[in-house]
Design a protein around this nucleic acid. Structure first.
Lengths: 237, 237
DNA sequence: TAGATTGTTAATCGATTAACAATC
DNA sequence: TAGATTGTTAATCGATTAACAATC
């Protein structure tokens, strides 16, 4: 952090009376953070220890200006004349994103999608532990899916408490989305990763919701493909 | 379409010499179209035949202004004093997005994710046909996964031609992403829905790419959860 | 006709880019 | 020191919202 930032921070503390402080960062920036995370991992894998915003911008196909602007929202992670230390920057991005915070997740719905997610390396890569799954089907209850035990949804609240679950992943049919979410409101769960297709609006109940619609991405692709076919046909572009 | 728009369209044709014309619509609008698609379906399911931008805005948690602005990018689908006819609007959105165009897709990589996608109702809902899967594992080649036959990647080009595949879904390990994509460049495939984690940059080869990173969405959720925990702890907000 | 609601323009807001002084 | 590259401000660009005239 630069000297200037330090004094600004000090000033803020006086006004604010708090030590820990996360400045409000624009949603556009936050949505880009995981991408930095991925590319920094890649750089580490490649054995690079140093990177400039110009290099990174070429890799990521964005402007160097945007990279510097984005990173600066969280502090001065670079050094003039040198660039960014890859490992340090990676550590910082991890801190910001809560990687290695040890978040504990449970999956409700042990169907195709839920099972596929659990069997992937997605969670491990991000320092997130999958501790339990839940389903209603007797044939899966008591079994394990990729090392994760499956419980009956009847014991949901109990097990969530037992495992100190932070985040719940909903991969059950959309019909059950709302009732399940309302059960979660009375637990200590802090976030819902919602694949049900039913967009949840939990208001100000202390649970953060991320609604996922994979199909939307397919549709925008279809739009682009249709457009490109049209252009080819009409000899355009 | 209003009278005014009609004459503008006529004027454009003169300048332009073409009949079919898709105006350039901003990416922000395009990304919102699938959401309109979903909510219109919901309205149809509910038996509503008419909706105003104000009603829809309440349902979708966006401004009525945005809805009118968005829809108008593609033509005047509404009627002053009345609102929008749900079925007509749905038809139009479907046309724009290529739903019912009969896109044919193939999945390369019959692992957990590929299988889960194929077994979901996502494609059916959007009028997309899954015609083939490909893998290298002898144990799955020749089998069917949810009605879809699995072929060896050795016969990829041949089968893509045979089935007239428009879009390929990549659900194989990221190591094979680039080599597989380069094979696709020499086929008639128009789009790639890429789940490999390796971001593909195919440049101007006529193939549209949509890179999907589900994990990114998990990470932004983690960010928000961490922030919210912090705020609770510091008694903030 | 009166009421309602769109289509559309103009105003605002936010996000990106360019530029350069600060500084390592 | 000179060269490189950040941090940061100012300029530009794009997207959203507000407002209202057009019109069903």
């Amino acid at each position: 952090m630069s000297e200037k930032n330090k004094s600004l921070e000090a000033l803020r503390k006086e006004i604010d009376g708090r030590d820990s402080f996360r400045p409000t960062v624009s949603p556009a920036v936050i949505k880009r953070l995981p991408r930095y995370f991925r590319y920094l991992r890649e750089l580490i894998r490649m054995g690079k220890s140093r990177v400039s915003s110009a290099e990174l911008s070429k890799m990521m196909n964005v402007t160097a200006s945007q990279i510097r602007q984005d990173l600066n929202c969280f502090g001065g992670f670079g050094q003039q004349g040198y660039g960014y230390n890859v490992n340090y920057l990676y550590t910082k991005i991890c801190e910001i994103l809560g990687v290695g915070y040890g978040f504990r997740v449970a999956v409700i719905g042990a169907g195709n999608l839920g099972s596929a997610l659990v069997r992937s390396d997605m969670f491990e890569k991000r320092g997130v532990d999958v501790v339990a799954m839940f389903d209603t089907k007797p044939s899966v209850i008591g079994k394990k899916i990729g090392n994760v035990p499956v419980y009956s949804v009847d014991v949901l609240e109990e097990k969530l408490r037992e495992f100190a679950v932070d985040i719940v992943i909903l991969t059950l049919p959309k019909e059950y989305a709302v009732e399940t979410a309302s059960r979660l409101v009375h637990t200590d769960v802090g976030g819902i990763w919602n694949f049900t297709g039913k967009e949840l609006e939990l208001g100000d109940c202390g649970i953060v919701v991320e609604n996922v619609h994979i199909g939307d991405s397919l549709m925008t692709l279809c739009y682009e493909v249709a457009k490109s076919m049209n252009e080819k046909q009409t000899g355009d572009k």
